[in-house]
């Protein structure tokens, strides 16, 4: 478990430190700013996550209603 947490911690530090090195010109942002490139869960996908949270014993990270609000796990 401690080794697992160390790996996650190193990954977070790596991601944050890279923010200082990445330089993207405004005209190059058309790809990164595309709606389908964003990390959030869209409205049409949120129902799939809701179904998974009911029919499986786990909860998906970022799921809106992964817990509470219904008579499910």
């Amino acid at each position: 478990m401690k080794r697992y947490l160390k790996i996650v911690f190193c990954l977070v530090i790596f991601l944050i430190s890279n923010s200082c090195k990445v330089s993207i010109k405004p005209y190059e942002r058309i790809y990164i700013d595309d709606p389908r490139m964003q990390m959030h869960i869209t409205e049409d996908m949120s129902f799939q996550h809701y179904v998974h949270s009911i029919r499986e014993g786990s909860v998906m990270t970022q799921a809106e209603k992964g817990n509470g609000g219904c008579g499910c796990n």
């Binding site: 991601l15 923010s19 993207i24 990164i32």
Partner: peptide, 21 residues
Amino acid sequence: TLNLGVSQVIDARNKMGLYGL
């Protein structure tokens, strides 16, 4: 429930995210 997350642009065509619950 507590959700934490960070997303990072890697280059002009790649983005990564790390999320915890």
